[in-house]
Amino acid sequence: MADYYSSFEPKGTRWLLQRLTAAFLVVVLAFHFMLLHFVNHAAEVTFMQTNLRMSQPGYFLTMVAFLVTATFHGVNGVYNALVNQGLDGTPKTVVKYGLILASVLLVAQGIRVAMAMAGFIIGPAA
């Protein structure tokens, strides 16, 4: 029988964070689908409705947490899948820092969009 291998250290920090982010994402994704696909149908959502939702601090913080959590969960999963497939050495380091950079850029842009949707002024005032 083949040995089981995982790049996650059992009960390690990344292992725990992967599980915690999964649980958070299930709850927030259910909330998102309920609100934006059943209460308000996607075709009926307007910029003004989005602006009203995003201007509420609780909703804004939940969506930013959703963005950060989903980014971490996805990137951590991809990285560990690649390591499990045998990625090591210099390519592993390049992929690791490339994914970190992509994550930072994604979260920064996502927060910029969330702030714009909430009505915050981004950049020089006209």
Rank of each mutant, 00 (worst) to 15 (best):
Ala2Arg: 15
Ala2Met: 15
Ala2Lys: 13
Tyr4Glu: 13
Ser7Phe: 06
Phe8Thr: 04
Phe8Gln: 09
Glu9Leu: 08
Pro10Phe: 07
Lys11Gln: 13
Gly12Pro: 00
Gly12Ile: 07
Thr13Leu: 15
Thr13Asn: 13
Thr13Asp: 12
Leu17Arg: 08
Leu17Gly: 01
Leu17Pro: 02
Gln18Met: 11
Ala22Leu: 11
Ala23Asp: 02
Leu25Ala: 00
Val27Tyr: 08
Val27Phe: 11
Val28Ile: 14
Leu29Ile: 09
Leu29His: 09
Leu29Tyr: 07
His32Ser: 10
His32Asp: 13
Phe33Trp: 13
Phe33Tyr: 11
Met34Val: 14
Leu35Lys: 09
Leu36Asp: 10
Leu36Val: 05
Leu36Lys: 01
Leu36Pro: 00
His37Ala: 11
His37Thr: 11
Phe38Ile: 15
Phe38Leu: 14
Val39Gly: 01
Asn40Val: 06
Asn40Lys: 14
Asn40Pro: 05
His41Leu: 14
Glu44Leu: 10
Glu44Lys: 09
Val45Ile: 15
Val45Cys: 03
Val45Gln: 03
Phe47Lys: 10
Phe47Ser: 10
Met48Tyr: 12
Thr50Gln: 05
Thr50Pro: 02
Asn51Gln: 15
Asn51Ala: 11
Asn51Ser: 12
Leu52Lys: 00
Arg53Lys: 10
Met54Ala: 06
Ser55Phe: 03
Gln56Glu: 13
Pro57Ser: 12
Phe60Val: 09
Leu61Gly: 07
Leu61Val: 12
Thr62Gly: 12
Met63Gln: 11
Met63Phe: 12
Met63Ser: 05
Met63Ile: 04
Val64Ile: 12
Val64Thr: 07
Val64Gly: 02
Val64His: 06
Leu67Trp: 01
Val68Asn: 01
Thr69Trp: 04
Ala70Val: 11
Phe72Trp: 14
Phe72Gly: 06
His73Lys: 04
His73Gly: 05
His73Glu: 06
His73Val: 02
Gly74Pro: 02
Gly74Ala: 08
Val75Met: 08
Val75Ala: 09
Val75Asp: 06
Val75Gln: 10
Gly77Asp: 00
Gly77Asn: 01
Gly77Met: 02
Val78Gly: 04
Tyr79Asp: 05
Tyr79Ser: 06
Asn80Cys: 03
Asn80Pro: 04
Ala81Val: 12
Ala81His: 08
Val83Ser: 12
Val83Asn: 14
Asn84Thr: 00
Gly86Ser: 06
Asp88Gly: 11
Asp88Ser: 13
Gly89Trp: 03
Thr90Pro: 01
Pro91Leu: 01
Pro91Glu: 07
Lys92Val: 09
Val95Tyr: 01
Val95Thr: 10
Lys96Trp: 10
Tyr97Phe: 15
Tyr97Leu: 12
Tyr97Lys: 09
Tyr97Cys: 07
Leu99Ser: 03
Leu99Pro: 02
Leu99Gln: 09
Leu101Arg: 10
Ala102Asn: 03
Ser103Pro: 11
Leu105Phe: 08
Val107Asn: 03
Val107Phe: 03
Gln109Gly: 09
Gln109Trp: 14
Gly110Lys: 00
Ile111Phe: 00
Ala114Tyr: 05
Met115Phe: 07
Met115Pro: 00
Met115Leu: 13
Met117Gln: 07
Gly119Leu: 05
Gly119Pro: 06
Gly119Arg: 00
Gly119Thr: 05
Phe120Pro: 04
Ile121Asn: 15
Ile122Cys: 01
Gly123His: 07
Gly123Leu: 06
Gly123Met: 04
Pro124Thr: 11
Ala125Asn: 13
